[in-house]
């Protein structure tokens, strides 16, 4: 029964191939991060953590526009203390975002950064950013959240303006991923 053997071998190979491709689907997740970093896609990945000091390029100044967005269901008052900065490449810049919780309940928020144009993302070093961690605020409280960054001196000449946006998401523990569906089934007071 040579045919049966050949069949079995082929099936095993093909099954392995499909399992492999299933894994590949998941492998696309980290691959995508690498891809984003290389191409600046989505402006997701910026350099984080400590950075070596660079010679400040005083001849050049780059506009950095800071933007704040509240995602759906996020009632915090949230915005940059300065919305437009002029920064020399290589210069260490410190600024802050201000957030206050106007509700009466404790809430936890996570800020998600994004950079435009995406090509600029890899030249933006964040030394310290409130987006590294989540932020908790009691109802009625306010906080100034620090942001320290530096623009790499290698930033391509064509880029004059970098937009750095933070979107604030509500990640309070009582609001979980499945809450959306539960609420739709059970209804809510308003």
């Amino acid at each position: 029964m040579d045919a049966a053997k050949a069949n079995r071998r082929l099936i095993i190979r093909l099954l392995m191939a499909s399992v492999l491709m299933f894994g590949f689907g998941f492998a696309l997740v980290p691959l995508y991060d690498v891809f984003c970093k290389v191409t600046g896609l989505n402006g997701r990945i910026t350099a984080t953590g400590p950075v070596d000091a660079m010679a400040v390029d005083t001849a050049r100044s780059v506009k950095v526009r800071l933007i704040a967005i509240n995602n759906e269901g996020m009632p915090w008052l949230f915005g940059p203390t300065e919305s437009l900065l002029r920064v020399n490449p290589g210069e260490m810049k410190q600024t802050a975002y201000r957030a206050s919780n106007p509700t009466t309940r404790r809430m936890v928020a996570q800020a998600i950064p994004s950079v435009s144009p995406g090509e600029a993302a890899q030249y933006l070093h964040k030394i310290n950013c409130f987006c590294f961690d989540s932020q908790a605020l009691e109802g009625g409280d306010a906080i100034d959240m620090p942001l320290m960054f530096m623009i790499d001196t290698d930033l391509p000449e064509s880029i004059h303006t970098i937009t750095l946006s933070y979107t604030l998401f509500d990640i309070s523990p009582d609001k979980t991923g499945t809450a959306e569906n539960d609420a739709q089934e059970g209804g809510s007071p308003i």
Binding site: G73, A179, A183, S188, P189
Partner: peptide, 16 residues
């Protein structure tokens, strides 16, 4: 509060 700040995990938006 609900009209201004929305209702978490529902379609009710914040209208502030």
């Amino acid at each position: 509060d609900i009209v201004l700040n929305g209702s978490p995990a529902t379609a009710m938006q914040a209208f502030r």
